[in-house]
Design a protein around this nucleic acid. Structure first.
Lengths: 224, 224
DNA sequence: AAAAATAATTAAAAATTATTAAAAAAAGAG
DNA sequence: CTCTTTTTTTAATAATTTTTAATTATTTTT
């Protein structure tokens, strides 16, 4: 489940948020000031961070600036000062969302869920992917090349699906193996065999599936 | 620049949003009902969609459900009905954000920018480094010189990646060796050989990779 | 200016990794 | 249960990369 960091100097509010999100099935972690937040961010990774703007010593914006390079997850700001909103949201800092006090806990939960859902979606959900001449439809387990159906076995399909979902990204053989076969499986060499059969069925010229020597494979992102 | 689709049956509101976002430098596209929205989404891709919930015939939620499989971009809902918020945001539909009428145009713009900024960040964060004519993309294992792809072996790529990540810093051969090969490895002389091949492939003039006598190497930080 | 130290350049050997085909094993269909 | 198809394993070959080591060139020191 998603792991959420809550940073707020008002301890009871922080705990409240934490409790509610825990009830919703999230794993939470609470810190009461900016310094502590920086520390924990160095050590652990989070799927989302909730950050109070107004904190003594180090403000939420400062914290945000310091971690933005290292951290990729959405950051939701909590603020009481409505008048700062424009500046806050649009420009200065790398916020992804904000919520103003007083807020209903339902709204916070809803926003958290929307962000988490989005993160998950970006990685996987997309039923149809088309790159160059090749199209796959995940729901129907179909593959087309130039709109002509191509028959693949289940494993071949899953492999292709994983590659195309991560088009443009160099994937190590281990990564592919874990994703398609699951980590405690047999020989990793089987990846190469399935790559071979995929190529044979729909990429005889090796235009789409590129070998990255010493690492693994990559499905190209755009066609020349 | 980012391309935004606005779907709202109240034509003046749709136009207003479109005008403001155009002023902010976004490319906009307006549709006045769900059917038209579905059509245009089939043909073009957008970076963000603003979707009114309350529309005759086909509601915003319906539209959202139908396009979610094909479309990956953030969707912001516009709604007047506060009471539906929880349901809206958290669960049923694949919304990424919502904004309630009446809203200030500033808030909408701010939210749009936050989403666009986030999308860009996820893609680029630390992934691409460009110095002078040379660009590397870590995720895709690609190297370009003047936008022309250059083929490197894995070791060469990792070496270049390390050098460019530490551009402007003098690195000892030992440092480089430890970082790229790992400390308990073979001969340190291999560093020089790989520097040689890097220079051969993309720095024949030795403009970028400088030798620091008695120490090691440095990738220049800025081009003259 | 010569000697010493360090780096650059090579080419060939060694090691690693990818490809391929075929056999074995497992899963599924009738 | 048997036959067929799919998947996995194996192993030999081919291709590529990395390392080694010897030579040449350059810089620094004396």
């Amino acid at each position: 489940m998603a792991k959420i960091l809550i940073v707020d100097d008002e301890e009871d509010i922080a705990e409240l948020i934490s409790d509610v999100l825990s009830d919703e099935g999230f794993e939470t972690c609470v810190r009461f000031n900016g310094e502590e937040a920086l520390e924990i961010v160095e050590k652990e990774t989070f799927d989302l961070i909730i950050l109070d703007i107004m904190m003594p010593k180090m403000s939420g914006t400062e914290v945000c600036n310091q971690i933005r390079d290292k951290v990729d997850c959405p950051i939701i700001f909590v603020t009481a000062k409505n008048q700062l909103l424009d500046k806050l949201l649009g420009f200065e800092i790398g916020a992804d969302d904000y919520i103003t006090k007083p807020f209903t806990i339902e709204e916070l939960v809803a926003r958290v869920k929307a962000h988490i859902r989005r993160s998950n979606r970006v990685i996987t959900n997309k039923d149809t992917i088309t790159i160059g001449e090749i199209t796959i439809r995940k729901n129907s387990f179909e593959v087309f090349k130039n709109n002509v159906p191509v028959e693949l076995s289940t494993r071949e399909f899953e492999l292709l699906s994983y590659l195309m979902s991560n088009a443009g990204i160099a994937l190590s053989k281990e990564q592919i193996f874990d994703a398609v076969w699951g980590s405690n499986y047999g020989e990793i060499g089987t990846v190469a065999v399935h790559i071979k059969s995929l190529r044979k069925k729909l990429d005889t010229e090796e235009k789409y599936i590129k070998t990255i020597w010493g690492l693994g494979y990559k499905f190209i992102k755009v066609v020349d």
